[in-house]
Design a protein around this nucleic acid. Structure first.
Lengths: 253, 253
DNA sequence: TGCACTAGCCTGTATATACAACCTGTCCGC
DNA sequence: GCGGACAGGTTGTATATACAGGCTAGTGCA
C-alpha cells in the first residue's frame, strides 16, 4: 500500500458514498455485505466492518444484523444552525467584545420562569440583564435567570469579563440545551438598549440550559434584526467537514 | 463476559465519560493511553482503541499521535438548531400541509441571484413562489431560484404535492447547505400572502443548497413571526441522543 | 399441507499481532 | 555548548481469527 494513500477504510467509505451520490446505489438498495467487500476489494473483514460502521454512524446506510446493509433513505432536507457563545463569536471575528451589566439581583421565580426552569414558583433565582457589544455596537440583550442553588456565587462574577454562559460551564459541564428562535418586535427597554430604530424587529433566542440533569438557566437573547444573522453550514452526516465550519455571523455596520 | 452486558468498548467509553462528568478528569487532563487501559481494564488494545476513537468523534477527547489522549476543552456553549423540510415538519405534527403556487417562470439570473448561485448573470434559472400552509394557515412564503441546468423539468412538477426541496433531492442527493436566519419586516406581497398584521416581523431563512459540487438552488423562506418558531435541542457530542429529537415547531393558532 | 428445525449468511464484538508514523526526551559525538 | 541520532512511548491502521446472535430460506418430517 502506498504510504501516502488514504486509509483503506476511508477509500472504501468514499467508494460507497460515490455510488450513492451518482445513483448506482439508491435508497433501500442493498450494499454488498462485508464478506463480499472482502472478496471484491481485498481488504480484511474488520476493515470493511469499520468502513460500514462509520457510514452507519454518518447516516449513509442502515444495517440489520442477520440481514444486510442498505442505503438509508434521504433525510430530504435537514439543515442545521449552530449557535455559539456570543463572546466567542465576536472574538472569532477578531472584534472586541464588551458587556454592560444593566442589572443583577436575587429574585423569587415568577410563574413563567419557574415553569421554564421546572421548579416551584418562588424558588430563588438570580436575574441578570446584560447588553453585549461588538466593537461598541450593541448586538445582544441578554435577560437571564440562573438557579441560585446551582451557581451560588453568580452575583459576584464580573460579567464584563466572563459571560454568564461561560460561568455556568465552569461550574459544571453543560449537558444539553433547548432553544427556540423567533422574530419579534422588541419592547421599549430592549429597543433602547440595543439602539434600534422603531419598527425594527428582533431575533429572539430563548434558551434553556441543563446541567447535572436539571435545567439551571433560562435566557432570552434579543438581537437587532438589521445587524444580526444566524448562519449555519450543513453537510450531510459524514462529509468529514469540520464542525468549526459552522459559524454565527454578525453584520456590523 | 456476561451475554447481556453492554459491549466492552461501550463500558469503557462510559467509564471515561463518567470521569469527565464528575471532575476526576478535567479538560486538558491526560487520559490513560491505550496500553494503560489494556493493563487496567483487561480489554485488548483494539477495543480500547475503538472506545477512544469514538470518544474522539463525539468530542469528548482529543488525540495526538505520538503524544497521547486529552480531555477536550468544553465547547462552552455551542448550540444547534435543526431546520427540517417544511412538509415533513407539518406531517410530523399530524397536520396537513398544502401549498399554493403563486408563480413559476423561467428567468435569467439577476445580479443578486447569480451571485448567490455562483453563476454568471443571465444564467437560466427557474423562479418559484410558493406559499405553504399548515391546516390552512400560511406558514411559509418560499421564494426560490433553481439552476435550470440542474433541474430541467422543474417547471413541470406539481409543487402542491412535492416540495421543491424534495424534487431537488430526488434528482441528486443534496450535499450541503448554507443558511442564514434573520428577523426582518416583510414587504407588502409577502405580508399579504402570509396573512400577517402590519408591524409583525418575519423570520427569514435564506438557504443555499449544493448538489454535485455546486450551488443549485437559492431560496428565501419567510415565516410569520407570531406563528412560527425554530426549535432546537442540543446535547453534547456523544450523549447518544437520537438526532430525531431535534425538531422544528410551529405554533399554529 | 403444515410445521419445526437447521444450514447458511449476515452483522456485532473481541482479541492478538503487526507495522507505520509521530512526538519527546535523552544520550552521544562533535 | 550544540546538534543530530536514537530509543521508547503514543496513536493510527490493517489483518486473521473467533465466537455470538439475528434472520431467512429451504429441507425434511409428521
Amino acid at each position: 500500500m502506498n504510504v501516502h494513500a488514504k486509509p483503506r477504510y476511508q477509500q472504501l467509505k468514499e467508494l460507497i458514498i460515490e455510488q450513492i451520490s451518482n445513483g448506482d446505489l439508491r435508497p433501500r438498495d442493498r450494499v454488498p455485505s462485508e464478506n463480499e467487500l472482502v472478496g471484491s476489494t481485498g481488504v480484511s473483514r474488520m476493515t470493511a466492518n469499520r468502513a460500514m460502521r462509520e457510514l452507519t454512524d454518518e447516516g449513509y446506510v442502515e444495517r440489520v444484523a442477520g440481514v444486510g446493509t442498505f442505503v438509508a433513505d434521504l433525510k430530504a432536507a435537514s439543515h442545521v444552525l449552530e449557535v455559539r457563545n456570543i463572546a466567542d463569536e465576536i472574538a472569532h471575528r477578531g472584534h472586541t467584545h464588551t458587556a454592560v451589566v444593566l442589572s443583577r439581583a436575587a429574585e423569587r421565580a415568577d410563574a413563567e420562569v419557574a415553569n421554564a426552569l421546572r421548579v416551584e414558583e418562588g424558588e430563588k433565582v438570580f436575574h441578570l440583564v446584560i447588553v453585549h457589544k461588538e466593537n461598541g455596537a450593541p448586538i445582544q440583550h441578554e435577560n437571564r435567570y440562573v438557579l441560585a442553588a446551582f451557581a451560588p456565587d453568580c452575583l459576584e462574577q464580573d460579567f464584563t469579563r466572563i459571560t454568564p454562559s461561560a460561568h455556568l460551564s465552569a461550574i459544571s459541564p453543560l449537558q444539553e440545551a433547548e432553544q427556540i428562535v423567533q422574530a419579534v418586535m422588541p419592547d421599549r427597554p430592549v429597543r433602547k438598549n440595543l439602539q434600534m430604530n422603531e419598527g425594527e424587529p428582533c431575533l429572539l433566542v430563548r434558551r434553556l440550559t441543563w446541567a447535572q440533569g436539571r435545567p439551571v438557566s433560562f435566557a432570552r437573547l434579543y438581537h437587532p434584526g438589521e445587524r444580526f444573522e444566524l448562519a449555519g453550514r450543513y453537510a450531510p452526516p459524514g462529509m468529514r467537514r469540520s464542525r468549526r465550519d459552522s459559524i454565527t455571523k454578525v453584520e456590523s455596520e
